[in-house]
Amino acid sequence: MEIEDTLLMMPGPVPVAPRVLRAMSKPMINHRGAEFSAMYDDCCEVLADVFQTKNDIFILSGSGTAAMEAAVACTVGPEDTVVALENGKFGERFKDIIARYGKVNPLENEWGHSFDLEEVEKKLEEGAEAITLVHNETSTGIQNPAKEIGKLAKKHDALFIMDGVTTLGGDTVMTDDWGVDVAVVGSQKCLAAPPGLSMISVSERAFEAMEKKDSLPYYLDLKAYKKSGGKSQTPYTPAVPLFFGLQEALHIVKEEGMDARINRHATGAKAIRAAADAMGIEMFPQLNDDNSHYSNTVTAMKAPEGVSGNDIKKDMIARGITIAGGQAHLSGKIFRIGSMGNVQPKDIMLTIQELEVVLKKRNVVSDIGAGVEAASDVLDTLL
């Protein structure tokens, strides 16, 4: 199978529109000139709607993890305590980053289990300068209660730092209304741009915290980004071709409209869940309260008894569709299908069709068609 024919149905990177690829092939420009400044401002204008914020927005030449580190490194000092909420791989990553800059007070849940808000509040009552949350934990397919965590952070005067890497641009995120002081997103997820850029929104409260820091990182210094941002520039050399791609991807977001884009993502995920149920495949996340929900950008499912999730992944790749397996201790136990970015109903239908064939060959289902029919019934609402 030629790589150009492979359909990416994983939780990022995602398929990139041809017009985005064409934009990236434009000739180089002066990254300190008026043309770049206009592009930077254009990107930030669309991103303000994506983030739903009036806070400063900066674009970093670095992946989502770079933005996560910038969020922590610029606001957390050696004597600061941060409540790190972890119920998946990326919550664990936030915890590990915090440990390099400050003191971690972790609340570690079994991966795929939602947070008890009373337990979160108990952690904050112990004293904390900040709290971190992964809004959408793609490693387990669970969406965490950002709005409620934001209320608790405000109540206890803690900065709220949120990873919105796989929801911003594809699901409802209300940065200002939820009281998010620092929110981050990666280019290669719901925004459907190539990997390599991250975007970060920063509140005045977060900048006030930076004023109390004895030192800030060099490349990820958000105060430097604020200074340069006032001139519609980046403090250091930007990845210009990626900016070209991001601008075009954001134009696609603007043309579709955020409400329609959010509905498309939610409907796609609902269709995959309906197909899984029709095929007798059990969802992975354990939603034990009303505060957490299934992800609207990636669906995690338990591997059927006697079949490894990694084998399902390999079988799908052999059929030209890349899905994801489980991470860390979940390897082989689950498999995941992404539905973010510019994924269309036909992509979901093809994925479910091929998945049914794979499951039939492995004697998981006896007949083909139930999953396709269930997914089609949901996706028809988009037509």
Rank of each mutant, 00 (worst) to 15 (best):
G12M: 06
V180N: 14
I272N: 00
I348A: 09
L21W: 09
P238A: 02
Q286S: 05
M210P: 11
H265V: 00
I252F: 05
C74I: 03
D221P: 10
K26D: 15
V182A: 11
P11Q: 13
E356M: 11
G369P: 10
P304A: 12
V184R: 14
M316D: 07
I348H: 04
M24P: 09
H113Q: 10
F36L: 14
R362D: 07
D289R: 12
N291I: 00
D289V: 06
A84D: 02
P13L: 06
N109C: 08
Y225E: 08
I3C: 06
C43E: 02
H135W: 15
N291Q: 07
D311F: 05
G230D: 05
K155F: 14
D380S: 12
G326N: 12
V14F: 04
M10H: 09
S203G: 11
Y219A: 04
A374W: 04
P241G: 14
I142T: 01
K103V: 09
T132M: 07
T381Y: 04
S339L: 09
I200K: 04
T172Q: 01
L330V: 04
Q233Y: 00
G369C: 05
T140N: 06
D377F: 05
K95H: 15
A48W: 01
A249N: 07
A260F: 04
E356R: 04
V240N: 03
P194W: 10
M283E: 13
T234A: 02
A71Q: 01
K154H: 13
D171Q: 12
A73M: 06
E282C: 02
P285H: 11
K346Q: 03
Y219R: 06
I200F: 02
S331R: 15
V50A: 10
D181K: 13
I59R: 01
D290P: 00
R22W: 03
N363P: 05
N296C: 08
A274W: 00
A374E: 07
N310E: 09
G150C: 15
T75P: 04
S292E: 08
L7Y: 05
T322I: 11
S114R: 10
N55R: 05
D41T: 11
G64A: 11
F243Q: 01
M349E: 08
H113S: 08
K26S: 13
E148I: 14
K213L: 12
E373I: 04
R261N: 14
A17M: 03
V82T: 08
I312N: 03
G127F: 07
M24Q: 12
S25N: 15
M349R: 13
V182N: 07
L355G: 01
A278S: 15
G230A: 10
M301I: 03
I368G: 11
V120D: 00
A130L: 00
A269Y: 01
E255A: 14
E373F: 07
H251M: 11
Y294E: 14
R205D: 08
R319K: 10
A66E: 11
I368M: 10
A276F: 09
Q286A: 07
E305S: 11
A73D: 07
S308V: 02
I97F: 05
A23L: 14
K270C: 01
L383K: 08
S232E: 12
